[in-house]
Amino acid sequence: MTPLLEIACFNQESAINAANGGADRIELCRDYASGGLSPAATTLMELKSQITVPIYVMIRPHSNGFCYDKESFEIMKTTLSNMRNLGADGFVFGILNPLSGDSSKSLSSWIDVARNKELVKLAKGKPCTFHRAFDCIPESHWDTALDDLKGCGFASVLTSGGPSSDRAIDCVDRLADLTQRLDPLQSHSQKSCNPLQIIVGGAVRANNVQVLRETSHAQAFHSSALISSDETVATSEVESLRAMLRGNPLQRKSTP
């Protein structure tokens, strides 16, 4: 089975380029420098009339970490409801519990279960991805965090493989471990009957996605498909990613 290819798009042009390049899904957001924030509603409205590729919308009101006060959480709920009514096919978000004042004490649960579950419920059956807030969580807390995410009702987790690196290629062993923990065919846990899907993200490009696939055994990959300094997806990079995941690399024309 060919893995899923999701492209992070920070503007309307990028989403169109990604669709034309063969993306299976769009993660729609804005502000690349901040790691992605909630997009404008008008962008989603226009794209729904231009492309047929499923669009998952980022729900993130600010870039100041992944903990939210009451006001920010209300914004998240309103944004999700509005985007759902405008035709969003899914949602991407993640809320962590704040660290205590004593930094020597680790959290018993990193995931803010109550608030994440409330947003999943507001999605009304549309799939939700827990984004790379997961990469803040130490590996020693993964089992608890994954159980919490299942309990919240998330369909997938976007990760580069943990806090040790922002680049998935640096964390292939950890990604393989995560995939194995969540694969019901490899896990003996009865809790895996409805497993989370691991989406590999973090500097994923056509020149490394084959290694990532072979080593991690993941079935979904996430890339911004940027090959220049601006925020616009390169159709050629999406095409190359798609070809590599199909095991049919594009033939590059040689320079005379």
Rank of each mutant, 00 (worst) to 15 (best):
F221W: 07
N208W: 01
C193K: 15
Q210I: 09
F221I: 10
F221K: 07
D183S: 14
V238A: 09
A225C: 15
M244Q: 13
G201H: 06
F221N: 03
A220F: 04
L212Q: 00
R213V: 06
L196C: 02
I227F: 07
I198N: 00
T235S: 12
M244P: 02
S228N: 12
S187R: 05
N194A: 13
I199S: 02
R205S: 12
E214R: 14
M244S: 09
L245T: 11
H217W: 03
S236K: 07
E239N: 07
R213M: 14
C193P: 02
P184C: 10
E214A: 13
V238P: 04
Q186A: 10
S223A: 11
V211N: 11
A220I: 04
E231W: 10
I199W: 00
N208S: 01
S224H: 13
H222G: 04
Q219L: 13
N207S: 15
Q219S: 15
Q219C: 13
H222Q: 05
V200E: 00
N208V: 01
S236F: 06
S192I: 11
N208A: 00
L185M: 13
S240F: 00
M244I: 11
E231K: 15
A206P: 05
T232Q: 11
F221G: 01
A243S: 08
D230T: 12
L241A: 07
A225P: 01
Q186G: 02
S229N: 10
N208H: 02
Q219D: 13
S192A: 12
Q197D: 11
D230W: 10
N207R: 13
S223Q: 06
R242Q: 12
V238R: 06
N194L: 14
V209G: 02
L245R: 08
C193E: 14
L196V: 01
I227E: 06
G201P: 08
V211G: 06
S224G: 07
Q197G: 09
A206W: 04
S187C: 09
T235G: 07
E214G: 11
H222Y: 09
A203K: 08
E239V: 09
V233D: 09
M244H: 11
T215A: 12
R205C: 10
A243R: 03
Q219P: 04
N207F: 13
S223N: 05
V209E: 03
E237F: 06
R246Q: 14
V204S: 01
S240E: 10
D183H: 10
A220Y: 03
L245M: 14
S229L: 13
S228F: 03
L185E: 14
E239D: 03
E231T: 14
V204N: 02
C193T: 15
D183A: 08
E214M: 13
N194R: 15
E214F: 08
F221R: 04
A203I: 01
Q197Y: 02
R242A: 10
L245W: 03
V200K: 00
F221L: 11
A234V: 05
S229D: 12
R205I: 07
L226D: 08
S224M: 11
G201Q: 05
A234D: 14
S192F: 08
V200H: 00
G201R: 06
P195E: 07
I227P: 00
S229K: 11
V233T: 10
V238F: 09
I198L: 02
